[in-house]
């Protein structure tokens, strides 16, 4: 059974389609990278899939009642909003909101999920600090921990590693990888194609609102796709350290 099915998903803004007839399926246990240049429609695709935008076509997520959807999919928006100086642990506990009934206080299971998420994102030392007093990258990790604490079979993350140091970028991708072994899938938009190549099972390339390619990294990161979509050339090789991707230079259309 798939965790997410999009069928001809279309989002129109004004006259022009921002996402045009996008179809894809995500199965359990996958780390799927969503790549594409700025304005290709990555964020719009994910928000529409969650039912946060009016859209045409079909998303399996919008068929669910809001509460069930929140137990099925966690959403990590690109805007890293933390409105109040709440403690890191309190913020991460917000991920348990879909699992709690009205007025219910967190159970032992909730607290375990929260402390596991805090450990995974290397935040134990910050647990009692006000989240707003942390650095940008640390706040990003707190918000990722919040999404992990939601303990859903599917995570949609919009550029979660932007602004993180290399160690925590890799740790985050490895956290998604570890989750995939237990059946949890992640759809993660990325600008760092090197990370995408190394840490994703599958890449989906978006180009001007349409899905241009969908498959294993080697079949998506071809010279032709890179030139047509990103306007760059790149080095891609598989060696003893796995897949290595390095962008080289801007290619001009003549």
């Amino acid at each position: 059974m798939s965790l997410l099915t999009l069928d001809a998903l279309t989002v129109i803004r004004g006259e022009c389609p921002v996402v045009e007839s996008a179809s894809l399926t995500i199965s359990p246990g996958e780390v799927v990278g969503l790549i594409g240049p700025n304005g290709a429609g990555k964020t719009t695709l994910m928000r529409a899939a969650l039912g946060l935008l009016p859209h045409g076509g079909l998303s399996s997520l919008t068929q669910m009642p809001a509460r069930n959807r929140a137990k099925h999919v966690a959403w990590l928006p690109q805007a890293r909003e933390i409105a109040w100086p709440v403690a890191v642990e309190t913020l991460v506990t917000l991920g348990r909101v879909p699992h709690l009934n009205a007025g219910q206080t967190p159970t032992a299971e909730d607290r375990a999920a929260v402390s596991h998420a805090i450990q995974t994102m290397d935040l134990t030392a910050f647990k009692d600090r006000a989240a707003t007093q942390l650095s940008g990258g640390e706040q990003a990790r707190v918000l990722i921990a919040r999404a992990l604490a939601q303990a859903t079979p599917l995570i949609l993350a919009d550029e979660p590693v932007a602004g993180l140091d290399p160690g925590h970028q890799i740790a985050t991708m490895e956290a998604f990888r570890a989750l995939s072994r237990t059946g949890t899938s992640t759809l993660v938009s990325l600008h760092d194609l090197g990370l995408a190549a190394r840490h994703c099972d599958r890449l989906i390339l978006m180009d001007r609102g349409q899905i241009g390619a969908d498959g294993p990294p080697e079949t998506v990161l071809t010279q032709q796709h890179l030139r047509d979509t990103f306007g760059i050339s790149a080095h891609l090789s598989r060696g003893e350290h796995g897949l290595i991707f390095q962008p080289l230079e801007v290619v001009r259309d003549d």
Binding site: L52, A70, L94
Partner: peptide, 16 residues
Amino acid sequence: DALTLGEDAASALGIR
């Protein structure tokens, strides 16, 4: 409480 994370995140947490 959930709106601390912004409207999008709160909505995805099941808040109407």
